[in-house]
Design a protein around this nucleic acid. Structure first.
Lengths: 220, 220
DNA sequence: TCTGCTTTTTAAGGATTTATTAATATTTCC
DNA sequence: GGAAATATTAATAAATCCTTAAAAAGCAGA
């Protein structure tokens, strides 16, 4: 399932928005028309839709009401017109939020963050462009899935849940491998190595999974 | 029939929760003890029960297991304690979900919404070209019926109702075969195999029923 | 800078998990 | 009661992951 589907006929604007959302770690798909957006939604599903009102063919309201017939996926309506009618119309049709063009990207991002937090936060942890879906056990980096093993997933989850804290190796090992594990603690460092390989820009100079000399590791 | 019965001995908390649920349009009844909850359930019936664990007299687990003797109405267990024991206990007894106090009301509401959507929204589930008729217990792929056995149907239904979720083998097994099944968990993988044979383009490279290594399976 | 210690890096063998298949057991339906 | 359909088991094959060990590199204090 996608995170966000953006339906916007102005290609440039759509791509700009996509880029910003991706930089926040969301998995974003872009559609240029209402029909295309609906098709995308039916194929892939999404956790949030951002709909422009003014679209060729089926407009944002049309998409909104069509979606509301089936389910209540969050929807943000984006409108160019100034009037209050659009806002009422949008909210009447079941949109969750409304923003007027031209909008401040930060405000839109805040709305998106808010929706994800309220609706999905129990299942997700996000740090910068890294997002971890606890339920589906997916990890996304810059909106793209990174495939990890079960151990790697558990390890990263623990690190992220204790962000900023220097976690002793022994603690990490106990929590992930179990108190009575027969393995050597050495194996932990190897797993850290693979995680860095998958998550860091430059694994030699990690920026997320840092080594705390003499202690263990810390996620930033 | 009521929509939701909330069993919670803290009156203030119970009423707060009721209010929120009612605001979402549910028909909610409140009970202050396990016995009262069971009585209400027997009198009126309900589509969902939200059970606090800590109750005077019969606790939430007691109510849960009593209900499970008759039917499989969805149950959400609410526990104040921090330990994982309660969670295991709850899921073991057949609860559908579990949440810890203090909880974020939005998260509970999301769980409730999810249960209603999955369980009561329709008699059909459609994912891509796969359609599942819960009432007639038919499965259609690209519009053509695929004949499946009862086990296969239940398995696929559970997977589809939890689309996107990595479901541990043990959970799947418990839900389909029953927690007290004598069978080997191995039998699950064989059924998955037959399902893939019937549903996947290329059973060797499944696109719908994916294996999550070290965990279980996930429907996409 | 040197020394001792800690951490990183590799790669290969071993261990574990899952897939496959066929044979056997069980259930269902006539 | 018997045949057909379904479920389960068991054994083997295949895929994936984990661990180990050893050498290289890095860090900290003298």
């Amino acid at each position: 399932m996608a995170d966000i589907i953006v339906v916007e006929d102005n290609k440039e604007l759509g791509e700009l928005l996509s880029d910003f959302l991706q930089a926040e770690g969301y998995d974003v798909y872009l559609a240029g028309s209402g029909e295309e957006g609906l098709k995308l939604y039916e194929e892939k599903g999404a956790k949030l839709l951002i709909l422009d009102v003014m679209l060729p063919g089926m407009d944002g309201f049309g998409v909104c009401s069509r979606i509301r017939q089936h389910d209540n996926t969050p929807i943000i309506i984006v409108s160019a017109k100034g009037g209050k009618e659009d806002k009422l119309n949008g909210l009447f049709l079941g949109a969750d939020d409304y923003i007027e063009k031209p909008y401040d990207i930060d405000i839109l991002l805040a709305k998106v963050r808010g929706i994800f937090q309220r609706r999905y936060s129990a299942d997700e942890i996000t740090e910068g462009s890294l997002r971890l879906d606890k339920v589906g056990r997916h990890i996304y980096r810059d909106g793209r899935e990174v495939s990890v093993t079960a151990r790697e997933f558990d390890l990263l989850l623990y690190l992220m849940e204790n962000k900023g804290k220097a976690i002793p190796k022994e603690e990490l090992f106990c929590k992930i491998w179990g108190f009575d594990s027969e393995s050597e603690i050495q194996t932990l460092t190897v797993h850290i190595r693979w995680l860095r390989e998958k998550l860091e820009q430059n694994p030699k100079k990690p920026e997320r999974i840092l080594t705390v000399w003499g202690i263990g590791y810390r996620f930033e």
